[in-house]
Computed example of a mutant assay.
Amino acid sequence: MSKEEILLVYDKDCPACDNYCQVVRIRESIGELKIINARESSEVLEEITQLGLDIDQGMVLKMGGVIYYGADAIHALALISSRSGVFNKLNYWLFKSKRVSAVLYPVLRFFRNLLLKMLGKTKINNLNSTGNDRF
Rank of each mutant, 00 (worst) to 15 (best):
K117S: 04
G85W: 06
Y10V: 03
D18Y: 00
K117V: 07
L119S: 03
F87E: 14
V44K: 05
V44Q: 08
G64R: 14
L127R: 06
N126P: 07
E43W: 10
F87S: 14
K123M: 13
Q22R: 13
I35V: 07
V23Q: 11
E43R: 14
W93K: 12
N19L: 14
A78M: 09
V24Y: 01
T130E: 15
Y69S: 02
G52M: 09
F135Y: 05
G85Q: 11
I6Q: 02
V66S: 11
G64S: 13
V86I: 15
A78R: 06
V103T: 05
Q50S: 13
R25I: 08
A78D: 06
V23D: 05
G31P: 02
L33E: 00
K121C: 01
P106Y: 03
I36K: 05
I6T: 01
D11K: 11
A78N: 06
I26L: 06
I74S: 01
K98N: 07
V66F: 11
C17K: 03
V86A: 15
Q22M: 09
N37Y: 02
L79I: 12
P106N: 07
G85V: 10
S84H: 15
N91A: 15
L90R: 06
L104I: 11
D56V: 14
T130V: 15
L94T: 04
K121V: 00
M59G: 10
L94P: 00
T49Q: 13
N91I: 13
G52I: 10
G131A: 12
Y10W: 05
L104W: 08
I30L: 02
E40W: 03
S29P: 03
S97D: 08
E28N: 11
F87M: 15
Q57A: 12
E5R: 04
N113V: 04
S129Q: 08
L116F: 07
D54G: 08
P106H: 05
D54L: 10
Y105I: 04
Q50H: 09
R27G: 01
F95A: 03
